[in-house]
Design a protein around this nucleic acid. Structure first.
Length: 876
RNA sequence: GCGGACGUGGCGAAACUGGUAGACGCAAGGGACUUAAAAUCCCUCGGCCUUAGGCUAUACGGGUUCGAUCCCCGUCGUCCGCACCA
């Protein structure tokens, strides 16, 4: 009777070979069946996969295998997001070439993924750093350029004055360069931009059509695009220092209703007016410089203390020429948004209020809540930002904020200064154009040539690819393309004179904005085969981290539109269904404090629980280690777990099953060693029960039992099938897992009886049906175990190529239901009654219950609430 | 700072988004089998009260409702994004 334990080290490679041999996961573009495209966000080849990858790809693989079983022609490809900074950092730190570092990483990560037994079409694999890929990206760039979707403009970068290099935001720590420690400066460079703002309105409107996206992602994108309806208002300059010659300042506001609450104007440090004033005033110039030293990150800017300086300029209030207001330069006003100038209404905006208190500017309440008292309404430390009734606003008093908006707009639109209306209604977007220039080597070269005579000349398509030179050095900071002895020198394609290549490369977000399209025909000479791309796209189910909710997804949505405009695809929205998985997080461990703080990996640590307190000890040294907060697994904090260890000891199926089972997939999962054992026990238990009964099951027909004792087996099996189907459709893997546990628990005793030869024919047939269904249900999550069990019970072919079973409606339906009975909202009894019993029948049955009789104590109930199929509540 | 989420036993969670709170798993405890261990099987398991049973409990404080983990208002805590990390 005793069967051997299931040995994944033997079974898993065996089945992987079998799948490969039969080309089970190769996808044919000409297959006539309905298509289904499932894609997980491709990984950055950092060198090792981590548990986040395992979770991500396990989820995608369940969807792929499930959809395949449902009869779809499934596309499930994989590739590598291979350009980016870490390769250059490795080159600087260890002297490895970015290309060899990257390709080695890809090789080892691919080997790790292979071991997971994912149903991927590896024939379509590519890395974005493959010349074949970035050549087509350059082709797209040229098409976009021709179409007017790309342009150059001045834009700021973080400049490290010691290393003479451009820094990424993450390389700026507290305003200093991460390596040099020098105070970062902002520098203006001419850079390349994609005109994503051409599509602002469409990108916003189309969010409504993405009904298979999480609402929170749509909301985040909506806020990011940030459409607002407001007014640009021109303010006449009444007096100014000698260094300025402007006559007016234009501000953008979404709250013209609060105009009578204005107490100052604030402009950005880069506003032309600020520059003029600064040229004649050292103190203001110093303040503007200080603003520029903050780096370019918005988060850094806005968390900084709000500061300003009076420019000496005075402007006239648009609705009262005798009222003059001061103009400040303020560090929280952005040149990129609106007009780079605002008017401050302290009573209606918290930031303005803080600013006003700091610089002793007047605070006049102009909006109060509807039921407020105008005489006593004041503003303390908190601004009133809501809607309400206008006060202290002359001709607007008593109006609603909305009415006041309209009235101010109408008044100022009809008023003219210098022959032009003083105000204009304006729709504004927060979204900015996408700057793609990077002053770095390891990225896709921007295919243009700078000629002194012809200006900016696109590289002719027949000259593509513009290949990255291999012979580069990283001994110095800065862009190796810039200092390469020959690479940048090239003849102008137009006049053949000496010219220079563009040395900027593209943002890696460009690479990831169309890889899903390339997967549909990665062998094409052109970027895509438009017919094939439009057949496969949109991606039916895209799965990835919530951290990409805005940028990657928005850029991809733009890129698809741009590719449509240039004839490469025939659709706007690349991702029909989106699922954002939670991250894998882990405790952090460290020793030392402050700058001496050193992070320790979980592998180096032993955790013990002593009297309810968890204590971490360094395995080698025996030193006590501080247990820190739970954070996203990252290299810098070293709180990573190596999936190889898990797969090595338990097998891929256990690892896959575990990451799917513990937490809801859209929530963060805290990795813990405990629990893997449980998943593994389930694998062994399922194997043992099935393989022991297999000899008896092999001979039997699979037939659900409609009557008799075996009916119960068939009922729970078919109910589980129905539920698991629904769970897989919703990607609720953790619930599917729970139901499978329940089913196996229920089948344990029948299986044991079958194995012992103590079951009648009907039971054996019902059990065979149950086991067949069970194997199909576990196959998407644990494909190797499923194949092994399938073979054991004498199944035909591969489970990976079998169709999903259908549940039997009869067995799923319930004739009787048990209703909970509440008295005054508290559960006091149960009532079992026919499923189709009407209200009256339910009511009288309830009143007959002992518990209800006791509670009523002879009186009649106040009310009986019967929620059909759900609950009964008796109000006494 | 702004935007978005999340918070339920010792732990991961479930509850068909207004209808029995804690399914299922982990950990823990007890028992069976065994010379012994592992594996396996059975039982207990939010808290309080003396059992039948009752009271209490979904971060905290209010509200709406016959009924709230779910809806509304406020507070606290944690996480993600903020445009050059990917």
């Amino acid at each position: 009777m005793a069967t051997e334990r299931y040995n994944p080290r033997d079974a898993e490679p065996r089945w992987q070979q079998e799948w490969d041999k039969n080309n089970v996961y190769l996808t044919d573009n000409d297959d006539p069946r309905e298509k289904y495209y499932v894609l997980e966000m491709f990984p950055y080849p950092s060198g090792r996969i981590h548990m986040g990858h395992v979770r991500n790809y396990a989820m995608g693989d369940v969807v792929a295998r499930y959809k395949r079983a449902r009869g779809y022609n499934v596309l499930h490809p994989m590739g590598w997001d291979a350009f980016g900074m870490p390769a250059e950092n490795a080159a600087m730190e260890r002297g490895v070439h970015p290309a060899s570092w990257t390709y080695q990483n890809i090789a080892s990560m691919k080997a790790q993924l292979k071991v997971m037994g994912l149903s991927l079409d590896w024939s379509r694999e590519f890395a974005t750093c493959d010349v074949e890929y970035y050549q087509r990206q350059q082709y797209l760039f040229l098409d976009f350029l021709e179409k007017g979707l790309v342009y150059r403009k001045q834009s700021k970068v973080n400049w490290d004055p010691v290393d003479h290099t451009v820094l990424a935001n993450e390389q700026v720590i507290d305003g200093r360069g991460w390596r040099s420690g020098a105070l970062v400066e902002q520098r203006e460079l001419t850079q390349w931009f994609f005109r994503i703002t051409d599509f602002s309105q469409d990108l916003l409107d189309s969010l409504d059509t993405l009904d298979q996206w999480p609402e929170k992602v749509r909301l985040m994108q909506r806020n990011w695009i940030g459409r607002s309806e407001g007014l640009t208002i021109r303010w006449e300059i009444a007096g100014a220092p000698a260094s300025t010659d402007e006559k007016e300042v234009t501000v953008y506001t979404t709250r013209p209703d609060t105009l009578f609450g204005a107490s100052f104007l604030a402009i950005a440090a880069d506003h032309p007016l600020a520059r003029q004033v600064a040229s004649g005033n050292a103190e203001i110039a110093e303040f503007c410089d200080e603003c520029r030293r903050a780096g370019t990150s918005l988060a850094a800017l806005e968390t900084a203390e709000k500061k300003g300086i009076d420019t000496g300029i005075r402007v006239r209030h648009p609705l009262d020429p005798s009222w003059e207001l001061p103009v400040y330069v303020a560090n929280f006003v952005l040149m990129d948004y609106g007009t780079g100038a605002i008017f401050g209404c302290p009573s209606g905006d918290q930031r303005d209020l803080d600013f006003a208190r700091k610089y002793n500017l007047p605070v006049v309440p102009v909006v109060m809540p509807k039921d407020g008292d105008a005489a006593s309404f004041t503003i303390g430390d908190e601004a009133y930002v809501g809607d309400g009734v206008m006060i202290n606003s002359r001709f607007l008093d008593g109006l609603s904020t909305e009415e006041a908006f309209g009235k101010v707009a109408a008044t100022l639109e009809s008023k003219e200064i210098g022959g032009l209306p003083q105000a204009e209604r304006k729709v504004n977007f927060r979204l900015r154009d996408w700057g793609i220039s990077r002053q770095r080597y390891w990225g896709c070269p921007i295919p243009v040539i700078h000629c002194d005579d012809c200006g900016v000349v696109p590289v002719p398509k027949q000259d593509l690819p513009v290949k990255l030179p291999d012979d580069v050095t990283f001994d110095k900071p800065g862009n190796p393309l810039d200092r390469h002895p020959t690479w940048r020198h090239v003849a102008c394609p137009q006049c053949a004179k000496d010219a220079r290549r563009e040395t900027d490369t593209m943002d890696t977000f460009v690479d990831s904005s169309w890889y899903f399209t390339r997967f549909t025909a990665p062998w094409e000479d052109k970027p895509t085969d438009p017919k094939v791309a439009s057949h496969w796209l949109p991606v039916d189910q895209y799965i990835g981290g919530i951290e990409h909710a805005i940028l990657h997804l928005l850029y991809s949505r733009f890129f698809t539109r741009a590719m449509k405009a240039t004839g490469h695809v025939a659709l706007d929205e690349p991702f029909k269904g989106l699922f954002t998985q939670g991250m894998v997080v882990h405790e952090t461990y460290s020793r030392g404090e402050g700058a001496q703080r050193e992070w320790i990996t979980p592998a180096e640590i032993r955790i013990e629980e002593i009297e309810g307190t968890r204590i971490a000890t360094h395995v080698e040294t025996g030193e006590k280690i501080k247990i820190g907060s739970i954070e996203k697994m990252s290299k810098s904090k070293k709180n990573v777990v190596d999936p190889d260890d898990i797969i090595g000891s338990y097998g891929a199926d256990t690892a896959r099953f575990f990451v799917l089972s513990d937490s809801p997939p859209d929530r963060d999962v805290i990795w813990s060693e405990a629990g893997v054992e449980g998943s593994h026990r389930f694998v062994q238990r399922a194997w043992r029960l099935i393989s022991e009964a297999a000899p008896a099951l092999k001979q039997a027909d699979a037939r659900p039992a409609k009557t008799g004792a075996a009916r119960e087996i068939s009922q729970i099996t078919h109910k589980t099938l129905k539920a698991v189907e629904a769970d897989y459709e919703k990607l609720a893997f953790n619930k599917a897992v729970a139901r499978l546990y329940e089913l196996v628990n229920a089948l344990a005793s029948p299986l044991t009886q079958v194995a012992a030869g103590r079951a009648d024919d009907d039971t054996v047939s019902a059990v065979k049906d149950a086991v067949t269904i069970l194997i199909h249900m576990i196959a998407p999550m644990m494909p190797h175990l499923a194949e092994e069990c399938w073979r054991e019970i004498g199944g035909n072919g591969l489970i990976a190529q079998s169709l999903w079973p259908a549940y039997d409606e009869d067995l799923v339906a319930e004739n009787e239901i048990t209703l909970p009975v509440q008295i005054n909202g508290k559960k006091r009894a149960d009532l079992t009654i026919a499923r189709d019993a009407d209200q009256i029948a339910v009511q009288s049955a309830v009143l007959a219950l002992e518990a209800v009789q006791a509670a009523l104590n002879g009186q009649s109930p106040k009310k009986i609430i019967v929620v059909p199929q759900r609950i009964v509540n008796v109000v006494v």
